[in-house]
Simulated scan of single mutants.
Amino acid sequence: MTLKDQRFFLELSEEIGNHPDKQEILADYEMHVFEMLQEESIDDQNLYSELVKRLGTPQEIAQIWKQETIITPKRTQWLFVIINAGIFIGGALLTLSYNIFHWNWAELIWENLINIPLIIMLLYIMFWGLIGYEIGKEFGHGGYRLMQKTFLFSIVPNILLMYLIIFKIIPYTWFQPLLSFRFIVVCIVFTAFLYPVSMVGYRWGKKVSV
């Protein structure tokens, strides 16, 4: 570490103050600067100004992290849990509307959706990637356990639905012509991919937050 980047990190450390994730924040920025210096050569005399240009002043960075503490992990966790539950509740209402009430608008939506099951699955996987990305971006290193807890809470409706279908508690005829052994296997495989995808999103968001 040169005198110029030492100055940058000393100022950053002072500005961050008693932030609960201070050491992790400094470590993330130090790693980012190290990788940057490995990729390109920056004159020592211009290093401090270059860091300020690319990362912001230590005061600006510290202000961002102080604002981050306003966003509580618990609120973020339950926001995503509620959104995921809302997706399933919406699907349940549509299923009931189509199979029990036979409303025309429900039939129209249903017939269009059953023609694009893979697209729906891909969009849902992207949603889980977005969950990880947002948590990584907002909480950085401190969001790892939050990501795990959010996943565990959010996955409950998925597991419950698979249980109800596999054990035929929900009539198979409600999901025809989609429901088949092959389709169930595909759903299980896609569900197994949700956690890895969310963690990839988390790591990406964490990297962007630096």
Score class of each variant (00 low, 15 high):
Trp105Phe: 15
Ile87Met: 11
Ile169Pro: 09
Phe8Leu: 02
Asn18Arg: 11
Leu47Asn: 14
Gly136Ile: 06
Gly91Gln: 12
Trp110Asp: 06
Ile119Ala: 10
Phe193Ala: 09
Leu161Met: 12
Leu37Phe: 01
Gly142Glu: 00
Phe34Arg: 02
Ala85Cys: 12
Gly205Pro: 01
Leu160Glu: 06
Ile82Cys: 05
Phe34Ala: 02
Pro157Gln: 15
Trp110His: 14
Ile42Ala: 06
Met121Thr: 13
Ile25Asp: 02
Gly142Ala: 11
Ala106Pro: 06
Glu60His: 01
Leu194Glu: 05
Leu3Ser: 15
Leu123Gly: 13
Glu11Tyr: 07
Gln23Tyr: 07
Asp43Ile: 11
Gly205Tyr: 01
Phe80Lys: 08
Ser154Trp: 03
Tyr124Met: 15
Asn112Ser: 13
Ile89Pro: 14
Glu35Arg: 07
Val186Lys: 07
Ile135Asp: 02
Leu130His: 04
Ile165Ser: 10
Trp103Phe: 15
Thr57Asn: 08
Asp5Tyr: 14
Ile16Ala: 01
Ser13Asp: 13
Asn158Cys: 04
Leu3Val: 13
Thr191Arg: 09
Thr57Gln: 07
Leu108Trp: 04
Phe181Trp: 06
Lys4Met: 15
His102Ile: 05
Phe167Ile: 08
Pro157Glu: 15
Ile165Leu: 13
Gln6Ser: 14
Glu111Gln: 10
Leu47Ser: 12
Trp65Tyr: 15
Thr191Lys: 14
Gly17Met: 11
Ala106Thr: 06
Trp65Gly: 00
Val156Pro: 03
Ile82Thr: 07
Arg54Trp: 00
Tyr29Leu: 09
Ile166Gln: 08
Ile131Phe: 06
Val208Gly: 01
Thr173Asp: 15
Val33Ile: 15
Leu130Gln: 03
Ile184Arg: 02
Trp128Lys: 05
Val33Ala: 10
Asn99Phe: 07
